[in-house]
Amino acid sequence: MSLSENSVSAHDLVVVYRTARGTVRALNHSSLVVEGGGTVAIMGPSGCGKSTLLGLLAGLARPTSGTVTIGGTEISSLNEKARIRFRRENLGMVYQQDNLMPHLTVEENVGLQLAIARPGQHPDGDVHALLEHLGLAVLGDRLPDQLSGGQRQRAAIARAVIHRPAVILADEPTGSLDPDNAERAIDTLIDSQRAIGATLVLVTHDPTVAARADRIIALEQPALNDAATDAD
């Protein structure tokens, strides 16, 4: 997928779970359209389906009904194997927890992501250049447990963008950080997104972080049939 084909659209999305207590409607969102290269922040109360929506955009699951399309690919119609390949090659993922491999250095963590997404491409030059650009070069030979929380999250962002993904999906990327480190992390994320021309969809509870996006979408609590849900 070229970066000129990185729009994101979702239509008539519904996610329903059936439990012993009844039907749980975890998401009921009519539409979402993000132009290629744009940034959107998704906000809403706990249980409104923010993380569920992001998971559908990532192809981690398929909706009960509705469609998710990234560029020219309707990922909601792909089988699991095809969704995994699409995600590996075209998406960058950032989570609240950095999920760095503890036995690998920062440079090795970032290089591993590039090797997975772009097999056969020698990673060293690209990894060093990215870490230098993001002000992380001095951390390249450190293990994750030798970093602060803010440094770990910035390293995780570097890992998410090293393969120049078409779309970056971030789920509460500053949720575990203090305000100063949160600001540094979101600076790193926005700077990286703009540098590669990616589309960014960001889930956050923080209005300061959301204000950095081009647009904010507020999700409402889905109507439930017979049971409550704690989906986020």
Rank of each mutant, 00 (worst) to 15 (best):
P102Q: 07
P63A: 02
L56H: 00
S77L: 14
I116R: 06
T67N: 15
L54Y: 08
N79G: 07
S77E: 13
H103L: 15
D98S: 12
R87H: 02
A58L: 09
H103V: 15
D98T: 09
P119L: 05
N79A: 09
A117D: 06
G55N: 11
I70L: 08
T105E: 05
I75M: 10
D98V: 02
G72Y: 14
A117Y: 10
N99H: 14
G66Q: 00
S77H: 14
N79Q: 11
A61V: 15
T52L: 08
R62L: 12
G72Q: 13
T52H: 07
I70H: 06
L91G: 01
L104C: 04
G66L: 09
G66D: 02
M93A: 01
Q113F: 11
L57Y: 07
R83E: 13
V68D: 02
P63I: 04
S65K: 13
T73A: 11
Y95R: 10
G92Q: 04
D98W: 07
L100C: 00
L100S: 03
N79F: 10
V110H: 02
R87I: 10
G55S: 11
G59C: 02
S76L: 06
R62W: 08
M101G: 03
G59K: 01
E74C: 11
R118K: 07
R83F: 09
A115L: 01
E74R: 06
P63H: 06
A117K: 08
L114I: 01
M93D: 02
E80W: 12
N79Y: 12
E107M: 08
F86S: 10
A115G: 02
E108L: 01
N79D: 11
T105V: 09
T69F: 09
Q113M: 12
T73H: 13
L60S: 03
V110L: 04
A82P: 15
M101Y: 15
G71Q: 04
K81M: 14
I84Q: 13
L91V: 07
G55T: 00
A58K: 01
N79L: 08
Q97F: 14
A82V: 15
L91F: 13
G72A: 12
L60T: 09
E80K: 11
T73L: 13
T69Y: 07
I70C: 04
R83L: 11
K81L: 14
R87M: 08
D98L: 10
R88E: 00
S77V: 15
V110T: 01
A117R: 08
L91Y: 13
G120E: 03
